[in-house]
Each structure stands twice: as C-alpha cells, then as structure tokens.
C-alpha cells in the first residue's frame, strides 16, 4: 500500500542573518492511510517543524514530500493553500479559534475557501461536524463562553468540516487537564476508526499511547519509530473516569 505521506531526506534550515539553524536534518518517513501516529520529542527536536512541513504550512529547504501521491515541492503558494483546505485538518495547542465568532461560524470557515465547492450546504456541514464532536447544543456560543475542552472540540469540528483525509494535531491537549485530554483523545480515536489518518505531536507519554505508532525525534532527525504494543482505548478510560468521578462533563478550567 503506498503511503499517504512519504518524505525523503526532508530538511528545513532557518536562516537568521548569518546564523543557520537546521530544524530538520533529513527525515525519511512513510505514513500509511488510516494510521494514528504520535510524534514525540523534546522542544527543539524539530517535531513542530515537521508538522508544519507535513501540513503544507511551510516549504522544505530540500528533500522530497509526496502527499497522497502528489509531489508537494512542485506546488505554488495557492496550491499549498488548496491542499490545506481540501486534504488536511489542523488542530492546535492554543485552539486558534476566531474570537467573537460563534462556534458554528468558526466551523464554517474552511468552507469559505473551498474553491472546489464539494459541499453544497455549508451550514448543514458545519452543524454535522459540531454534532460529531458532541457540541450539538453549543452552536451559537463564542469561544470565551466555552471551556478549553469545548473550544478544542470546536477546533476539531473545524478540522473535519471539509472532510480531510489527514488530521494534524499539534499538542492538542497541551492546554487541557488530563481528563479533558482523554476525552479529546477519544474523539481522535473515533475519527481514526473511521479511516482518517491522524498525526499527533505531543510530549506526554500517556497521550502518545492512544496512538498506534510512536515516532521519536531528536535534533531534527527520527531516532525511534515503533508500533505501540500496549495501546490504550480512550473510550474505556473515559468510562472508568466517569465511574470514579461521578460527573458527566469535563470540569471547566
């Protein structure tokens, strides 16, 4: 099976004046469709840079990158934008929702830039996406009226609304308490179960063990790549937490 993501000797060098900083120094990586990969590493290991390159937010300095069979290096700025719109959904640590904008409008946002017009009814698609992440009753809430976990769910709904084949999540649980984190992981596992490829950057081992494969990075190269043997099921963990905690909803931060 060909990889949905294939990189060869991918490098990224940042230049600041005379100083060159090699953030990525030759990454060879193949990820197959439907995988759930966790990328781990200390800060400065290059995992966020790799994420930016895989998500077509930034261009590599050298090396090859094939996304779904497409040679990304040959594309221009607009085609990068279209790939981000059509094939990739982003989830960030800081949620990155638009302030003073309702959950529904936030989720609609990617559809504004959908030049292919694959989706006929943007409003319905946005509602469906919010319902999928369990926020069917929060359409009109603005980000400052939502808890951290709820904001991250809105962000996930926004990542899903354009029906991407890959979801890239950069420390999605970094700003959340452990219980909410597991609830978010439950959503990711559920999406992965439906065939969406998920790549998750995290530095928490607990979180990484909800993935199916862990890649470890250090100093801009991959130093470890192994399947997870004792993979955890977030649904079971959440159910266990509910029994011991007794409450249905995550506490607001």
């Amino acid at each position: 099976m060909p990889g949905i993501i294939e990189t060869k000797r991918l490098t990224k060098i940042y230049r600041m004046g005379d100083i060159e900083l090699a953030a990525l120094r030759g990454v060879d990586l193949v990820i197959e469709p439907g995988e759930f990969v966790a990328v781990m590493g200390a800060s400065g290991s290059g995992k966020s840079t790799l994420m930016n390159l895989l998500g077509c937010l930034d261009e590599p300095t050298s090396g090859e990158y094939r996304l779904d069979g497409l040679d990304v290096a040959a594309l221009d700025r607009d085609e990068y934008a279209d790939i981000r719109n059509q094939k990739i959904g982003f989830v960030f640590q800081g949620f990155n929702l638009l302030a003073r904008t309702s959950a529904l409008e936030n989720v609609e946002l990617p559809l504004l830039y959908d030049r292919a017009r694959r989706i006929d009814d943007p409003l319905r698609a946005a509602r469906d996406a919010l319902e999928r992440v369990g926020l069917g009753d929060r359409f009109d809430h603005e980000p400052n009226q939502l808890s951290g976990g709820e904001q991250q769910r809105v962000a996930i709904a926004r990542a899903l609304v354009n029906q991407p084949s890959i979801v890239l999540a950069d420390e999605p649980t970094g700003n959340l308490d452990s219980r909410t984190s597991i609830e978010i992981m439950e959503i990711f596992q559920e999406l992965n179960g439906r065939g969406i490829t998920i790549i998750l950057v995290t530095h928490e081992h607990d979180i990484a063990h909800y993935a199916g494969r862990i890649i470890e990075m250090r100093d801009g190269v991959i130093v470890g790549d192994a399947p997870v043997r004792d993979r955890r099921d977030a649904a079971i963990d959440v159910a266990a937490l509910r029994r011991s905690g007794g409450e249905g909803k995550a506490a607001r931060p």
Binding site: Q86, P110, L112, Y113, N162
Partner: peptide, 13 residues
C-alpha cells in the same frame, strides 16, 4: 490571518 491561511485561505482571499 494565520488561522485563515492555515485552513486554506489563498492570498487573494
């Protein structure tokens, strides 16, 4: 602007 670009806004948008 960063958010809009990340979810696929082109420069012209």
């Amino acid at each position: 602007i960063g958010i809009r670009l990340s979810i696929g806004a082109r420069s012209v948008d």
